[in-house]
Write a protein that binds this DNA or RNA. Structure first.
Ligand SMILES: NC(=O)c1ccc[n+]([C@@H]2O[C@H](COP(=O)([O-])OP(=O)(O)OC[C@H]3O[C@@H](n4cnc5c(N)ncnc54)[C@H](O)[C@@H]3O)[C@@H](O)[C@H]2O)c1
Ligand SMILES: NC(=O)c1ccc[n+]([C@@H]2O[C@H](COP(=O)([O-])OP(=O)(O)OC[C@H]3O[C@@H](n4cnc5c(N)ncnc54)[C@H](O)[C@@H]3O)[C@@H](O)[C@H]2O)c1
Lengths: 208, 208
DNA sequence: GACGTCTTGTGAATTTCTTCACAAATTACG
DNA sequence: CGTAATTTGTGAAGAAATTCACAAGACGTC
């Protein structure tokens, strides 16, 4: 199969959201044009994105909302549950642990770890904070697929090494720190400072 | 001036981080190669990115760290303070309000708003939560440049309209909701669910 | 069942982004 | 001063992503 661009995958996630909305409003069929309008893209882009994975539409009619939903879930790997551990039960880690949006999409938070003895043992949203020393052993039981890193930048690489050794195959990193991981491990960064700087650039250079 | 690609701006932010680190370690001069190595890009990419804004290096030598730092800060508009309001003092909004990383880079949080009367009046990190009804009037005084939206998706568009009317010219949106704003307003989305879905896709389709 | 309307799926064209590759500058050093 | 070693800045080439544009299929109607 041809390599799929990251931008395509991001758009598929968007389409999924729009389709969920269309389904909620009991709309049975949708055209690439309508889908495109919701995502400020073009109908050709929508069709091209989908065409990498097959032909899901009917000419003259469009796409069946429930069918395309099922296909997209399958393509994105959302047709089953993923096990997620969060490392770092600070402000961001705690917010993420409580966030409903993740479990809704099949990302089940199986454990929350922190190195601070003060925090260990406390409960966040029904989940007890566990000590870092327990991560490796407990991973044999939980079998986490994804680790979310919400630790200080200085600890991020060390923690990444630990979770990779514990069998995690994907990392979502919130620490502003470039991580090194084996290329068998998928890695995404969320860097809010970079987004803000992007806005700063836009304010400075565009218009005015 | 030629249009600058978003990917270029993101890389400039990264270079800035690396340079700050080099400066901390008292390294006076850096080559595009060394900068590239830190950001898993190429030296040609680094030079091309910088070349959109001028020639800052010395042939045979590289770039002066303090000089390039200053240039990048200027290019990104980080050579002065931006006023930021956060709307939504929930889990994410509170975490962001307390985050040191923003003020460090000149993003000063001037106000925090919420519509919940229970929350209004409480203090987060020295900042009193203000009622939504006060946003417009207080903006005449604070003159916010950037609004961070940390409200439920259902409220996001409504809040966006309010902050735009109040004179905000850039929005960082954490709600999983596609916003409509005038094209004089810069907009960035942070969507953590999409990042997780990207990892899910990678786990599903790459290897195995 | 022929005709008109609609919308997909996809090669081709276009645009955008990245990498290559090398002349021009600069330094180091004998 | 001359030569070797670096490293920038940038056109040109190459790769990747997006948009165009249209043939082909599906439906509704008469
Ligand atoms: N809070 C925000 O709004 C925000 C925004 C953007 C980025 N970030 C980044 O997210 C990360 C966490 O930020 P935060 O505000 O939640 O910080 P925080 O200090 O509230 O939380 C960090 C947590 O990590 C724990 N920790 C430290 N070292 C550890 C280790 N080696 N192993 C396990 N746990 C460890 C600490 O005990 C603490 O509970 C930071 O890298 C920060 O830069 C935060
Ligand atoms: N918590 C997370 O980890 C997380 C992760 C990803 C995305 N998000 C998104 O961020 C947003 C906020 O999430 P949260 O977890 O902080 O939710 P939250 O419920 O803790 O906070 C939302 C806050 O917004 C306030 N609010 C509601 N309507 C408002 C309005 N019209 N005007 C002003 N304030 C209003 C509420 O009173 C509340 O304090 C949501 O859109 C959520 O989907 C959150």
């Amino acid at each position: 199969m041809k390599r799929i661009a990251e931008s395509t995958v991001r758009r598929l996630s968007l389409y999924l959201r729009f389709l969920e909305d269309f389904e909620k409003r009991s709309i049975g069929t949708i055209s690439s044009d309508e889908l495109a309008a919701r995502g400020s893209t073009t109908s050709a882009q929508v069709r091209k994105d989908l065409s990498f994975f097959g032909s899901f539409g009917k000419r003259g009619l469009g796409y069946s909302v429930p069918e395309l939903l099922a296909r997209l879930r399958q393509i994105l790997g959302l047709d089953h549950e993923w096990h997620v551990v969060i490392v770092g039960a600070g402000k961001i880690g705690a917010a993420l642990a409580q966030y409903r949006g993740f479990s809704q999409r099949g990302f089940r938070i199986v454990a929350l770890y922190d190195s601070d003895p003060e925090k260990v043992g406390r409960t966040v949203d029904g989940l007890q904070i566990r000590p870092m020393s327990a991560l490796t052993a407990e991973s044999h039981h939980h079998r986490p697929d994804i680790a979310v890193l919400a630790v200080p930048a200085t600890a991020a690489q060390e923690v990444a090494d630990i979770v990779v050794a514990a069998g995690v195959r994907a990392i979502l990193n919130f620490a502003p720190q470039q991580l090194q991981v084996p290329d068998t491990v998928a890695l995404k960064e969320v860097n809010m400072a970079i987004e803000l700087e992007g806005l700063s650039f836009a304010l400075t250079n565009l218009r005015m």
